[in-house]
Amino acid sequence: MSDIKKFMYLNRRAPYGTIYAWESLEVVLIGAAFDQEVSLMFADDGVYQLVKGCDTSESDMKNFMPTYRTLGDYGVRYMYVDQASLEARGLTADDLIEVAWEDWETEEEVDNIVEVVDSAKVTELMAESDVVFSF
């Protein structure tokens, strides 16, 4: 019995210059109601969405960086980051926010579901997803 599909949200845009990152986040938040297996993939400029230390107080923009930290509560189980994209931008896993996850029924906990993966793994994860939403 497998009605559960693997949904992947692929994020390839920087967070503030365009509306893509916020739109993707909103769809993930709304889509949580469908109880699917949800993963997020961050590649290319999309890796900038997870960089910590963002402060929009002087830019008159909403800082939605804190919202990523609640995604574990919205059924997001995996957040993958393409290693090559990070490296090309002079970044490492230490520059990224951490997102905790907890199964409310079994109380299983994961401290951080953000995981840096190599390109071969990115390909594999995309291929095995039933649906890929690209932003």
Partner: peptide
């Protein structure tokens, strides 16, 4: 531009 650097988490030492 300072405000855009801040919004994107790019510190001066980077």
């Amino acid at each position: 531009l300072k405000s855009d650097l801040k919004a994107r988490g790019i510190a001066d030492d980077r």
